[in-house]
């Protein structure tokens, strides 16, 4: 190796080392910025000396008071409401979404393209508008306010068929020759689905269950509209939101933090546990849209 090329080589190496160091600094900074709010929320949930918002993070006095106090509020009720909603939605929505996406991916029928286009156009309407009428109808059925949970499940599940994109993208990647081989052997379409496609679809099933389960924990608009004013029918998002309104925040700020931690921890753990499937779903299906 000649001397100049040696120098160039070492120069390259040095510049790579510098750029890598910069990237490490950047990544550490990003990690801190992304984690700091959650770090703060956890710390403040243990603050005992005051219940309102303060300009410092580390509590002067530590304790579990905020967590204990949660149980004398409606929080457990909200938690149960949300949990029931999430479980039911996860199960029913998965069935509906998979039916829809499987059909649109695997079958070729006359109305397929018009149907997909129709749903695309339908999705351009702000869905929020429909809650005015849905609220009145659900109210007539007695599924609002204190009984909001079943009403909410119904609303979430009923129109979930429109979110078929990601799982359709997944089904598109399973080779069609598998179906055809089974059909030649005399299997019905239903048997093809049950015996061949479903066993291959574990990742997308888990992805759909996971996203459907996580949705209700964060939903705010519909839940608030349908449970309007009745604490017994609220979900965690609506209940905790009300603790941060100007007349409540001084009394309940630290309790909001502890409530937030209790909601976030199980959901996050479940998510991290199933992270692999989520990443697969997002990178595989979301882009094809």
């Amino acid at each position: 190796m000649s001397e100049t090329s040696m120098k160039r080589h070492m120069g390259l190496r040095a510049s790579r080392a510098i750029s890598n160091t910069l990237i490490y600094v950047l990544l550490i900074a990003i990690s801190i910025i992304w984690l700091i709010p959650f770090f703060c929320i956890v710390l403040q949930s243990f603050r005992v000396e005051s219940t309102w918002q303060v300009g410092y993070v580390i509590p002067k006095q530590w304790g579990f008071d905020n967590y204990v106090n949660l149980f004398s509020t409606d929080f457990p009720r909200w938690y149960v409401n949300t949990f029931i909603t999430a479980v039911c939605t996860a199960l029913l929505q998965t069935v509906i979404v998979l039916c829809m996406s499987y059909t649109l991916s695997r079958f070729r029928f006359k109305m397929r393209k018009p149907l997909m286009r129709f749903m695309l156009i339908l999705g351009m309407f702000p869905g929020m508008l429909t809650m005015i009428i849905l609220y009145r109808v659900l109210k007539d059925l007695g599924l609002t306010q204190a009984n909001a949970t079943p009403g909410l499940i119904l609303v979430y599940v009923a129109s979930s068929g429109m979110g078929y994109y990601v799982s359709k993208g997944f089904f598109d990647t399973i080779p069609k020759s598998l179906d055809e081989a089974a059909r030649v052997d005399g299997a019905t379409r239903f048997q093809v689905l049950k015996k061949i496609i479903l066993p291959l679809s574990k990742p997308i099933v888990i992805y759909t269950v996971l996203t459907a389960f996580m949705g209700p924990w964060g939903d705010f608009v519909f839940a608030r509209y349908i449970s309007f004013g009745a604490s017994a029918g609220m979900n965690v998002a609506v209940g905790l939101y009300n603790w941060l309104t100007p007349d409540q925040i001084n009394k309940n700020y630290t309790m909001f933090c502890s409530g937030g931690v209790l909601v976030a921890v199980p959901v996050t753990l479940l998510f991290l546990f199933l992270q692999k499937y989520y990443v697969e779903g997002v990178t595989g299906g979301a882009v094809k849209g």
């Binding site: 990544l27 984690l35 709010p37 998510f271």
Partner: peptide
């Protein structure tokens, strides 16, 4: 690095946004 970022997706938005 990826897990740290992905974790923040899991936390319900109303908590992180309100906070």
């Amino acid at each position: 690095w990826r897990t740290i970022l992905v974790m923040t997706i899991a936390i319900p938005q109303f908590i992180s946004l309100l906070y």
